[in-house]
Amino acid sequence: MLIADDDEVTRSGLRTLLAAQPGISVVGEAGDGVEAVERVRLLAPDVVLMDVRMPRLNGIEATRRLLTAPAEAAGSAAAPKVVVITTFENDDYVTAALSAGASGFVLKRLPVRQIAEAVRVVAAGEAILFPAALRRMVTARPPGSAQALPRAALTGREEQVLRSMATGLSNPEIAQALTVSLETVKTHVGNVLTKLGAQNRTHAVVIAYESGLVVPGFAT
């Protein structure tokens, strides 16, 4: 993984603590968004732990460059997963980063073992979702600002899967809740991402909230 944060003390502390966690190898650091994009091109990390407020290029734009143009940003390697790390859960920049394709976000105040677990989960292809924060984002939108779901309409089962994703359920949990196989859930998730034009499951959830398919206060 690569750590991008403009505070050298924070960056060094995270590197030391995370490198000591099982299954995590820190291959590099970056002090701003421009350097983060350059280092990803050189080092091809699986995951980038990305601060939001950085000089030259903030974490949102760096995330967008890494994930919307992965071939240019990361050379021949696959685009990395991005986990936004921030001080405040309700930081407005967080939802923008999720829309840019980040796989989730964690708070800097969390114990290092929880940050490490978030990195592992995202590296495995899952997402770190905070439905309450997404609901606040939608609540703050002006009335009538909902956007239609893009591209092809979802099937009834695909909508169920997307709503389950919006509550933070993992693929195995969705399979159990809907009484279907894990492979079936993976197929539905893939179809949802393709139909919505979403970069990952977190982006799909943002689209679900923005479109009104999932509304504040929704629960399975």
Rank of each mutant, 00 (worst) to 15 (best):
residue 108 K to R: 13
residue 108 K to A: 06
residue 109 R to T: 13
residue 110 L to Y: 08
residue 111 P to R: 01
residue 112 V to C: 09
residue 112 V to R: 06
residue 112 V to H: 06
residue 112 V to Y: 02
residue 116 A to P: 01
residue 116 A to H: 09
residue 116 A to D: 05
residue 117 E to I: 02
residue 118 A to D: 13
residue 118 A to I: 06
residue 119 V to E: 10
residue 120 R to E: 03
residue 120 R to Y: 00
residue 120 R to T: 09
residue 121 V to S: 12
residue 122 V to W: 07
residue 123 A to E: 14
residue 124 A to T: 05
residue 126 E to C: 06
residue 126 E to D: 15
residue 127 A to R: 12
residue 128 I to V: 15
residue 128 I to G: 04
residue 128 I to N: 12
residue 130 F to D: 14
residue 132 A to E: 12
residue 133 A to M: 14
residue 133 A to I: 11
residue 134 L to Q: 09
residue 135 R to N: 09
residue 137 M to Q: 12
residue 137 M to V: 06
residue 139 T to I: 14
residue 139 T to V: 15
residue 140 A to Q: 11
residue 140 A to W: 00
residue 141 R to V: 04
residue 143 P to Y: 10
residue 144 G to M: 12
residue 145 S to F: 11
residue 147 Q to A: 12
residue 147 Q to C: 02
residue 147 Q to N: 02
residue 148 A to I: 03
residue 148 A to P: 06
residue 149 L to P: 00
residue 150 P to T: 05
residue 150 P to G: 10
residue 151 R to S: 14
residue 151 R to N: 15
residue 153 A to L: 06
residue 153 A to I: 06
residue 154 L to N: 09
residue 154 L to G: 05
residue 155 T to Y: 01
residue 157 R to F: 15
residue 157 R to G: 07
residue 158 E to M: 01
residue 158 E to C: 04
residue 158 E to F: 01
residue 160 Q to C: 03
residue 161 V to I: 02
residue 162 L to K: 01
residue 163 R to A: 10
residue 164 S to W: 01
residue 164 S to P: 00
residue 165 M to V: 13
residue 165 M to G: 00
residue 165 M to Y: 07
residue 165 M to H: 06
residue 166 A to V: 07
residue 167 T to D: 08
residue 167 T to F: 06
residue 168 G to A: 07
residue 169 L to M: 15
residue 170 S to M: 09
residue 170 S to D: 05
residue 171 N to R: 11
residue 172 P to D: 09
residue 172 P to G: 05
residue 173 E to M: 13
residue 173 E to F: 02
residue 174 I to N: 07
residue 174 I to L: 01
residue 175 A to F: 04
residue 175 A to G: 04
residue 175 A to Y: 04
residue 177 A to I: 01
residue 177 A to P: 03
residue 178 L to N: 08
residue 178 L to G: 03
residue 179 T to W: 05
residue 179 T to M: 06
residue 183 E to M: 11
residue 183 E to Y: 04
residue 184 T to W: 03
residue 186 K to L: 13
residue 188 H to S: 11
residue 188 H to N: 07
residue 189 V to T: 10
residue 189 V to K: 06
residue 189 V to N: 08
residue 190 G to W: 03
residue 191 N to P: 06
residue 191 N to T: 05
residue 193 L to H: 03
residue 193 L to Y: 13
residue 194 T to S: 13
residue 197 G to T: 00
residue 198 A to W: 11
residue 198 A to D: 08
residue 201 R to I: 07
residue 201 R to S: 15
residue 201 R to P: 10
residue 201 R to K: 15
residue 202 T to D: 10
residue 202 T to M: 15
residue 202 T to A: 15
residue 203 H to R: 03
residue 204 A to I: 04
residue 204 A to R: 00
residue 206 V to W: 14
residue 207 I to L: 15
residue 208 A to D: 08
residue 208 A to S: 13
residue 208 A to Q: 02
residue 209 Y to A: 03
residue 209 Y to L: 09
